[in-house]
């Protein structure tokens, strides 16, 4: 059933902006991104929005709908009542470029700071046969579409701009967990997670998990296991003693 919906869309750029009210028609089965496109086509041809697949797989159309980080293409209009005003803003953790488009280069900078997969020296292709049980934990993290909603909602940087240099954010903790859980990875990631990427700043309030469109259990399956691994390496005297006796580094695992 078609109806005219009330929308508030943030319009502006780095110099300022405001929430602008629109009336726009909505048809059955549509998502918020459809409505934004209709606004572009009928009322505001200069409205900037980043999008690509319209299928929840590219991670481009990240924004905030009624104050909650969400993919515009995965937010169905039938989740709102017909008399409800739907507010759409850009991500509020990153610098705005124009309208609904933000500069998310912070995330690419953080990605570059994580050493890539580091297999043992001299290991040649085909010399190691991977078992499914060894990689299935990491496979969950490979579902990440890099929409950066978890980064956007994380209060460590959302509410504290000054933490950005020291904190990589949930997306990159699952990257570190993925690599640290890999049977062949030899890089020292536990201390790095604490000392270079600020996992200690995370107070595990689970907002990253709540907003993940791929339903990755970011906190339970990546951040907390990494915090436990950090505790192995840095805060557990018995693990430290055991490692000394066996001539290993604290945090080394079988």
């Amino acid at each position: 059933m078609a109806y005219d919906a009330s929308f508030r869309v943030w319009r502006g750029n780095t110099n300022g902006g405001e929430l602008t009210n629109y009336k726009v028609s909505v048809n059955e089965g549509e998502v918020v991104l459809d409505i934004i496109h209709r606004l572009q086509q009928t009322q505001t041809p200069d409205l900037a929005v980043r999008w690509n697949c319209k299928a929840g797989k590219c991670g481009s159309c990240s924004a905030e709908v009624n104050g909650k980080p969400a993919l515009l293409c995965m937010t169905r209009m039938n989740t709102f009542t017909e008399d409800e005003t739907v507010t759409v803003t850009p991500l509020r953790t990153f610098p705005v470029i124009k309208d609904l488009v933000t500069d998310v280069s912070f995330n690419y900078q953080k990605a570059r700071e994580i050493p890539s997969f580091t297999p043992p020296e001299g290991l040649k292709p085909g010399e190691y046969r991977m078992q499914q049980v060894d990689v299935e934990r990491s496979q969950e993290f490979r579902k990440c579409i890099e929409c950066f909603l978890c980064q956007d909602v994380c209060h460590v940087i959302r509410d504290h701009e000054d933490n950005k240099p020291a904190f990589s954010g949930p997306r990159f903790f699952i990257r570190q967990a993925e690599l640290d859980m890999h049977p062949l990875d030899t890089a020292s990631r536990k201390r790095d997670a604490q000392e270079k990427h600020g996992i200690g700043l995370c107070n595990i309030t689970k907002c990253c998990t709540e907003v993940c469109p791929e339903h990755i259990k970011i906190t339970d399956n990546a951040i907390i296991p990494m915090k436990e691994r950090v505790a192995d390496a840095k805060y557990d005297p018995l693990r430290w003693l055991g490692a000394k006796i066996r001539g290993r580094q604290p945090g080394d695992v079988e």
Binding site: G17, T20, Y22, Q43, T93, V96
Partner: peptide, 29 residues
């Protein structure tokens, strides 16, 4: 048809009000 809402008040310049971010007066929407 469109109308606009100007930001209601200035803010403290931290968190979601940090320079460079979209200027929205509400702490949460």
């Amino acid at each position: 048809m469109s109308t606009t809402e100007k930001p209601a008040a200035s803010n403290d310049g931290t968190g979601v009000f940090s320079p460079g971010r979209a200027r929205i007066s509400a702490k949460t929407l």
